[in-house]
Nucleic acid binder design. Structure first.
Lengths: 361, 361
DNA sequence: TCTTTTTACTAAAACGTTACAGTCTAAATC
DNA sequence: GATTTAGACTGTAACGTTTTAGTAAAAAGA
């Protein structure tokens, strides 16, 4: 759907208010921006006239242009925004960002568009913002390019290092390794992996080695790498370990993936999921099969979203500080906007949380 | 914290690209906006030169000013944004809005600030947007005024009708009445109510009749009204029914409120909560007291957030279509932006969902 | 060959502000 | 009484685009 701007009735301008009062435009401007530059009485009269003419104050677009300052930061998300709101981890991240923007009195502009839409680059390119937070984007996608080409202050989140831009993230690889090692330590030798989509094509199904290695999304690639290393170190073939990729990060997709994995021979006794959302779906698939967790199959997730500690059984997972990630990223960006130069990238702590969904093989 | 704009290095402009190439500014502009207006070859050369000069395309602020079109809508929220992200109902609402903005290729600007901050009106007044969605705001707050003064297309959500602006909401009063009647039908006569804050002061504690009647937030007022009517109709004194208001819509506040209510004499056998978040807290308080739900105390919520059907016992509540509310509001606004005039206000359906948390007195 | 159409480009005027450097008057200082 | 200072206001020039109306040359049509 295309949007045409409304041809609404004429709206009063600062100039007209000035003319009506017989003063200069500067004075009216000052009435709004520098009260000390004119007498109290005149200021009152300015506001009166403004109200009478239905003048709603200086136009933000003109002001932004003139001041070269938008008063907002852009948040660019990997996928459709509506998915972000459906993903507890992303919501927590945005919450963190919102804390930072509120501290700074800035707006938070959610830039629209999925990698599958054409208008996307234009959206990021056209955003009236002072800086970007780029969150978990396919690293070579057009969206990220569009954002970077603006050459605005930018903070990368869950992304590979790029052009010496400051970044915030966790040690995805190490964390993934830790979950896998935990399960190996419990004696498991037959694994199945439930993964995010590994490329921008929306495909669901088993992924070959090539596809796993060149996963488009940085966190996916690092996590798979962590699993792979741990398994190989434990004498388990990564190549023969099935990896089922899900087009979308919803529990239901995870359920389907787990169903597929459970039908394989030999049946995995441990399922590693790249997110809790997917792991929760896997839990359901196992239950529906009449199997029990963790007696028949162990399941581990990633993210430690609130639901992970409320499921039955409660989910073994990797805890990472989602809110803090957003907060850090937001503050870093604000610092850059304030002219502070060298922002250091940060790796936030994460750790394995063992709960009821994993047990001995 | 105040933000100063970064005094970054000079950034190339469209004019400079034009000068470098020896063509007019119009031509460069056309290269970006109307490819059919110049030859293929020149267009290519324009982009080359742009890249060489590190020109990132037309400046969005200038473009917005000239076109009188921001490409974004503003979402104004009642409270601190960070609370919105912590409230599942608000998140679902925003998800709905995001679907609508994505359909239209618009950005979604979250306007910062709580009613307790001074800079707020400036934030709404300075937002570079084409329209507003005003979500559940204290109806006479400065924020809503600031938004309305802009005289941009606006859609009200969960707000009292105002200035013939289109609105989206549910029948809060009727829904509240339905929950209360359900409990009365089960034989309850001793009620306690757990409410949101009833004024912009952040107070927690029992609220007198006056305060209940003039609650600042529209949904609170309507829901309390619904409870009141149902109780009075059932021969139960509303005045003597304790209403405990919570400063914030978090489960923990609900827990504290319920603790207070359970210490009263006579102890309520039914607790009505204005939201599921608060009701979930109440559930916990009752459990901590060693009482059982619904045997000793019944609890009903409002909103039917996902957690409501996962608690033990599962929560009796009012289901309302949060996502659809956002979607409707978003589409209404988009329609207005497209110049479609008469937008009808809409009352979305809601209904009582009876689950395990309510039972006979 | 002469008109008409098309193609490729340009000049100039907005869009609505704010920053900067002044100007002018009245009060304060010496 | 001359000089400085402060206060209140103004004029002009950006800010970086897009749009409108237009020109000149080339292509097409008669």
């Amino acid at each position: 759907m295309e949007v045409n701007r409304k041809v609404s009735g004429h709206r009063a301008t600062l100039k007209e208010v000035a003319a009506e009062l017989g003063v200069s435009a500067s004075t009216v401007s000052n009435a709004y921006n520098r009260p000390d530059q004119l007498s109290k009485e005149l200021r009152v009269r300015v506001f009166e006239t403004a109200r009478r003419l239905e003048y709603g104050g200086p136009d933000p677009m003109a002001r932004s242009l003139r001041r070269r300052w938008a008063g907002a930061i852009g948040v660019v998300y990997a996928d459709r925004l509506s998915y972000a709101f459906a993903d507890p981890a992303a919501v927590m991240f945005m919450q963190g960002v919102s804390v930072a923007t509120e501290e700074a009195g800035l707006g938070m502009l959610l830039v629209p568009g999925s990698p599958r839409q054409a208008r996307v680059p234009e959206a990021a390119g056209g955003a009236v913002v002072d800086g970007f937070i780029v969150y978990c984007l396919a690293e070579d996608g057009p969206l990220v390019d569009a954002a970077l080409e603006r050459r605005l202050p930018t903070v990368l989140v869950d992304q590979p290092p790029k052009e010496s831009l400051p970044a915030v993230g966790i040690d995805d690889e190490g964390a993934a390794r830790a979950v896998a090692e935990h399960l190996i330590g419990l004696g498991h030798t037959n694994f199945g992996v439930v993964s995010f989509g590994l490329d921008t094509d929306t495909r669901s199904g088993l992924a070959d080695l090539e596809r796993r290695r060149y996963a488009t999304y940085w966190p996916s690639r690092r996590r798979l790498r962590g699993y792979a290393d741990a398994l190989e170190d434990g004498g388990i073939s990564w190549e023969e370990t099935p990896v089922y990729e899900c087009a979308e990060n919803y529990p239901d997709e995870g359920r389907r993936a787990a169903e597929a994995l459970l039908s394989l021979e030999p049946r995995p006794t441990a399922i590693l999921a790249l997110s809790d959302q997917l792991a929760l779906g896997a839990l359901k698939a196992i239950e529906q099969r009449g199997l029990s967790v963790p007696k028949d199959v162990s399941v581990a997730g990633f993210d430690d979203i609130p639901e992970a500690s409320r499921s039955t059984p409660r989910l073994t997972t990797i805890r990472q500080p989602h809110v803090e990630k957003g907060l850090k990223a937001g503050r870093m960006l604000v610092a850059q906007l304030n002219g502070e130069e060298a922002q250091e990238s940060e790796i936030l702590p994460s750790r394995l949380v063992v709960r009821g969904s994993t047990g001995p093989a």
